[in-house]
Amino acid sequence: MHAVILSSYAIATNQIADQAQWHDNMMIWETARPYLYARKTPGNRIIIGGLDESTGYLEKRVPMILYNRDKLIKQLVNLFPELENRIWADYYWGALFCEIHDGLPTIGMYPDHPNSTSYWVIAGM
């Protein structure tokens, strides 16, 4: 089994009292590659993330955080044009994760990396 290191990005917007025309507070999940997800928070923010890319080198990923922060804002405005000029990223981050070729979850040790483990966690919203 061979794991590939990927980078993923996310933002949390400023607080917005009237958060777009959001149907039933549903989570949005676009399955294209790179994928995109968005959801509302109880604190009147919107979290949007994704834009995964194969970049396991920290020095290449860190500058991409700002670039993808701005790209995520544009993606959100594409989904909800009424938010243009009303939202910005109060918080933004990037993270590294591993994925195997078939995308299936794994549990346990990677034989080639004895000091790492992989866990599949299902979290409720």
Results as ranks from 00 to 15, higher is better:
Pro111Lys: 00
Arg86Glu: 15
Leu76Ile: 05
Phe97Leu: 02
Tyr110Cys: 01
Asp70His: 08
Glu59Lys: 15
Glu53Cys: 04
Pro81Gly: 08
Tyr67Gln: 12
Tyr37Cys: 10
Gly56Gln: 03
Asp90Gln: 12
Ile46Phe: 11
Gly43Cys: 01
Ser54Lys: 13
Asp112Thr: 13
Glu53Leu: 01
Ser54Gln: 09
Met109Trp: 02
Asn78Val: 02
Arg86Ser: 15
Phe80Tyr: 15
Pro63Thr: 05
Leu96Tyr: 04
Met64Asp: 04
Pro111Phe: 00
Trp29His: 11
Asp52Lys: 04
Val77Trp: 09
Gly103Val: 06
Gly43Trp: 01
Tyr67Asn: 11
Thr31Phe: 04
Lys74Asp: 13
Arg33Asp: 10
Pro105Glu: 07
Leu79Glu: 05
Ile107Asp: 05
Leu104Lys: 15
Glu84Asp: 14
Trp93Glu: 12
Phe80Thr: 09
Asp52Phe: 01
Ile47Cys: 04
Tyr92Asp: 14
Glu99Phe: 00
Ser54Thr: 05
Ala95Pro: 00
Lys40Glu: 10
Gln75Pro: 00
Glu84Pro: 10
Thr55Glu: 13
Pro111Cys: 00
Trp93Pro: 03
Leu58Phe: 10
Trp88Phe: 14
Arg86His: 15
Thr55Pro: 00
Thr55Asp: 08
Trp88Lys: 15
Pro34Asn: 00
Asp102Tyr: 00
Asn85Glu: 14
Trp29Met: 05
Tyr91Thr: 14
Thr106Ile: 13
Lys40Ser: 08
Val77Ala: 09
Arg33Thr: 10
Phe97Val: 01
Asp70Thr: 06
Ser54Tyr: 03
Gly50Lys: 06
Tyr110Arg: 03
Gly103His: 02
Tyr57Ala: 13
Asp90Pro: 03
Ile65Pro: 03
Lys60Ile: 01
Gln75Glu: 10
Ser54Val: 08
Phe80Cys: 09
Pro42Ala: 15
Arg33Leu: 10
Asn68Gly: 02
Ile47Thr: 07
Ile46Thr: 12
Asn68Ile: 04
Pro105Leu: 07
Asn68Gln: 12
Pro42His: 15
Thr55Ala: 11
Met109Ile: 07
Ala38His: 07
Val77Cys: 09
His101Val: 08
Asp70Ser: 05
Tyr110Met: 00
Thr41Asn: 02
